[in-house]
Amino acid sequence: MPETDPKVDEFFASLEQWRDELAALRRIALRCGLTEAYKWRQPCYTYQDSNVAILGAFKSSCTLSFFKGALLKDPQGILTKPGENTRAARVARFTSVSQIETLTPLLESYLRDAIRLEQEGARVDRSEGVDPEAPAELDARPREDPALKAAFEALTPGRQRAYLMHFAAAKQSSTRTARIDKCAPRILDGKGLNDCTCGHTQKPPGCDGSHKHYR
C-alpha cells in the first residue's frame, strides 16, 4: 500500500467527526494505488501529479469527490454535482462506515476508472453551456466607477461567472442594482461571491460559516 502523508495523519488526528468514515475512504483510495497528499487542507489523492479525488468533512456528511467525475459512468447514481453550475467535479456523500463498506467495490471501480481517464489524458469539456451575459446595470457601473470594472475583470473566470449569475437571476432592475451595490466591496477586494471575507474560514477561499462563532 502506498505511503501515507504525515500531514494527512495530522488531519485525521484533529477530526472530531467522520474520522472512521474518512479513514475507510482513505484505505480505499490507497488500495487503488493513488498518491496521498494534503491540499486545500484536505486529503487529496493523485495519479502522476494529477488530482483524482479528495476527501471532505462537513456537518451533515463526509465526502469523496472526483475532480473529473462528470466523465465517470455512475450506474447507481451515487455521484452528484457539488454545485448547480459545477461542470467537472462530482461528489459521493456518506454518513456511516457500513454505507461505505457496502459501496466499496463500486468506489474502487470509480477510482480505477478515474485513474484510467488520467492515463488517457481525458479532459472535461468546459465549453458546454453559455455563460450569462452581464446585465445592463453592471455594464453601466464602470462609467461611474471605473475601479469596479478593473476589479471585476481581474477576478478569475469562475468568480466572474458566479457574480453574473447572481446578478442576472434577479428579475427586477432595482434588485439587480441592489445586488451589484452590495457585492461591489467584495469585487473591489478581489473576493468571489462565496469567498470568505472574515478570515476565520477553515476551508479557504470559501466561507464555511466560521464567522458565525465570532460575532
Results as ranks from 00 to 15, higher is better:
S14E: 12
V124D: 06
D139W: 15
P75F: 10
F66P: 01
A169P: 07
V124A: 03
A13Q: 08
G192K: 03
A134F: 01
N85H: 12
F167E: 06
A57Y: 14
I78H: 01
N194E: 15
S60T: 13
F167L: 09
I115N: 01
K203T: 11
L107K: 02
L106T: 09
R143H: 14
S174K: 08
A162M: 10
D20V: 08
K68E: 15
N194H: 13
S210Q: 14
P43M: 02
H166Q: 12
K149H: 12
F66K: 00
Q160H: 05
A147P: 00
P2G: 08
A162V: 10
E153N: 04
A37T: 08
E36S: 01
A89H: 04
K203L: 14
S98M: 13
F12T: 00
I187F: 11
G33W: 05
L103R: 00
T86K: 00
L103P: 01
Y45T: 07
E21N: 05
L72Y: 08
G158R: 05
Q160S: 04
C196P: 09
E118T: 02
R123W: 00
L188I: 09
F94L: 15
A114R: 01
C62N: 03
K39F: 14
K191H: 11
L22P: 08
A70N: 12
Y214R: 14
E16H: 11
R186S: 12
L155H: 10
R90P: 00
N194T: 13
G129R: 06
A13R: 09
A162K: 04
F66N: 01
L164F: 07
E108W: 01
F94E: 13
L25R: 00
E84H: 11
R123C: 12
R215K: 14
F67V: 12
K73A: 14
E108K: 09
L22K: 01
K68H: 15
K203M: 14
L111I: 05
D49K: 11
K203C: 09
T156K: 10
P157I: 06
Q119I: 04
E36G: 01
G158C: 07
K73N: 13
T35D: 10
K149N: 09
A13M: 04
L138H: 03
A37D: 13
C207S: 05
P135S: 03
L15C: 02
